[in-house]
Amino acid sequence: MSRKYYRFFGGLIKTQEKWLNKLAAEGYRLINTGKLLYEFEECKPNEYQYCIDFIADKSKYNAESYREFLEEFGYRVFYKNINLRWSIGKAEVRPWAEKGGRIAMKSSTLDKELMIIEKHNDGKPFELRTTAEDRILYIKRMRAPWIFMLLIFTVFGIFVRSATILAAAAICLVFVSVFQAELIMLKKNAEIME
């Protein structure tokens, strides 16, 4: 029997990952995703493990080649939207993305900002990023859109004197700070390891 959940996680990628792993531990495996929908079927408890990767800055070509690369490992890959769309119409401008991904559309990575990756549990921890340098790069990639939004909301909020927009800027600031704190921690640890 399948189970359906509707959840909004937004930028809380780690929270979403933990939630999927909690359900997997209880014996539910992801079979389908929608905008807010997560559909599960029953499986043995702890049979699968999940990781979520942020890929909104990738071009369509690179996102697809990354997906194929992951599938070669025997992983199952779902695209998922991050539910933080601010685009007008059918395109979103992403100056922080790599070449080829700066105008995101339905045909590229718009509404495919995340990848949910499922691995058969083999007893080892499931981690996508295992070196300090790579983890630092990844956090910088996730931080970039929040810095961009922070700037836009702050300038625009002051310009039109809107408290709502400034509140949005404050939320962005929280995310930027969280990533910043993580970066500082990682850099410190990397120095200790050397």
Binding site: D53, Y66, F69, L70, E72, F73, G74, Y75, K124, E127, L128, R129, T130, T131, D134, L137, Y138
Partner: peptide, 27 residues
Amino acid sequence: HGYAIMQFIEENTGGRLSLGAGTLYGA
């Protein structure tokens, strides 16, 4: 291919060095 590279590294280091797929892709 990617998976074989990961296996090669794990075998030759006795599992000491284990690479995540994302890190390997970037490398």
